[in-house]
């Protein structure tokens, strides 16, 4: 039975308690549910993340010139032309 306050109205305090209790109960249920869900799904998510990490090649390393990293770097005519051009440009700059 509701109690009346000194001014003849509901004090509110006694009604607030069950409401707060209900809210806390709902929150506790939600937390419990989340906990159960997380314990069920987190390991799955973790293993799925690990699997995707393993699938991804860290660097999309593609082949380069055939004589790269083989101790067989040869000065082909095309390469020599580039190097010679740089040498000539440097000589021109120096003499200018």
């Amino acid at each position: 039975m509701a109690t009346l306050g000194p001014m003849g109205r509901h004090s509110g305090t006694n009604l607030a308690r069950p409401a707060a209790g209900a809210v806390l109960g709902v929150v506790a249920l939600a937390v419990g549910k989340l906990g159960r869900l997380s314990s069920r799904y987190l390991p799955r998510m973790e293993s799925s993340l690990k699997a995707s990490r393993d699938r991804i090649d860290p660097i999309a390393y593609q082949p380069g010139a055939s004589d790269l990293h083989s101790l067989n770097f040869t000065l082909t005519p095309e390469r020599a032309a580039i190097v010679t051009r740089h040498i000539e440009e440097a000589k021109k700059r120096a003499s200018a």
Binding site: G64, A65, L68, T76, E78, R79, I82, H86, A94
Partner: peptide
Amino acid sequence: AHIELDPTDPYRNTMLCTIIRPE
């Protein structure tokens, strides 16, 4: 260094780096 694509690399992944002697 002067850095440009190696003209002999069909994959265009290799750079030819040339350092010229300072005057």
